[in-house]
């Protein structure tokens, strides 16, 4: 009996070791690109060409970061990422606010003020979550041209807001269905109307999903490339487009440290959000599994 227990315990310990071993191995693999990006971005170019890929830098230098931020060339100009970083901020913030606000109202109507056909409308909106944008790029370009918004930041804000509504509506709809209808009834008896109930009762209760929606939209819009490349030109490009241009410029010796610094700069805002509010980020991801 005793030996049995001992062998059982040994087996258990080996099992745990295997589990932890595999997990840590995978973690190393997932961290490797980040490690390589960071270390490369603070190495001298000579050190990189001398063959240091994975190792620690012999000497840390932030020259590459400075270059990437304010000097790197993207084929037309050599002003670094800074102006495009600002573009992305100017475009992301209003688009996030507008799409989240509209999604909140839509979700509220669809769950708490159902009317014949409101479910069909929700179904129509939902397909927008999974639209391959290639199917609408051409008409959108034409329409933006007609509106006089072609190639401009406001045009891109409009595009992101419009195609963000589907997802934000889904978020809020799934959140609001779990709030009991009796709450709305109680408020009606208290004399509150459509708008009052939304502002005083639903919105304050929806704080978590507002955060989820904002984070999701922020990540989506900041990371977008297709719309940015299709609907903006030159000066107005968002950061992803500028990054790709900088990396693909082929003049002289390739400056890998600058590429990596630029990639890090483009990644930092979303990484920051992920580190600060990862829990909400995950909720946004799994909301794609529609259920509700």
């Amino acid at each position: 009996m005793a030996t049995n227990a001992a062998s059982f315990r040994r087996q258990h310990r080996i099992g745990r070791a295997v589990i932890y071993g595999s997990l840590f191995f995978m973690a190393a693999f997932y961290l490797m690109p980040l490690w390589v990006m960071i270390t490369t971005s603070v190495k001298h170019l000579d050190e990189i060409y001398a063959g240091s890929f994975i190792g620690l830098p012999q000497q840390i230098t932030f020259d590459a970061w400075r270059t990437a931020w304010s000097e790197a060339c993207n084929g037309t100009a050599c002003r670094g990422l800074k102006p495009y970083f600002i573009n992305s901020l100017l475009l992301t913030i209003p688009a996030v606010i507008m799409s989240t606000g509209i999604g909140a109202i839509n979700g509220y109507v669809i769950t708490k003020w159902r009317f014949p056909g409101s479910n069909v409308i929700f179904g129509l909106l939902l397909f927008g979550c999974f639209l391959p944008f290639q199917a609408v790029i051409l008409p959108m370009a034409q329409t933006l041209g007609m509106l006089g918004l072609a190639g401009s930041l406001p045009g891109l804000v409009l595009v992101h807001t419009v195609y963000g509504i589907a997802f934000t509506t889904l978020f809020f709809r799934n959140y609001f269905v779990s709030i009991p209808d009796e709450l709305v009834r109680a408020a009606k008896i208290d004399g509150a109307g459509f708008i009052r109930i939304f502002v005083s009762i639903m919105l304050p209760a929806a704080l978590p999903i507002i955060v989820v929606s904002c984070i999701w939209q922020f990540t989506q819009i900041w990371n977008d490339y297709l719309f940015g490349a299709s609907f903006t030109a030159g000066e107005n490009a968002p950061i992803t487009v500028a990054l790709n241009n900088i990396v693909n410029v082929s003049m002289g010796r390739k400056e890998y440290n600058v590429d990596m610094a630029a990639a890090m700069i483009a990644a930092l805002p979303t990484l920051f959000v992920y580190v600060v509010a990862g829990r909400y980020f995950v909720r946004g991801l799994t909301a794609g599994a529609v259920k509700g």
Partner: peptide, 24 residues
């Protein structure tokens, strides 16, 4: 009206819950 699930406004205090209708 008093509801089965009580339907208290979750983000308001008890006082605010009771006052809500009067405020309106």
């Amino acid at each position: 009206m008093v509801f089965q699930s009580y339907a208290l406004y979750p983000t308001m205090t008890v006082r605010q819950n009771i006052e809500f209708g009067m405020k309106i």
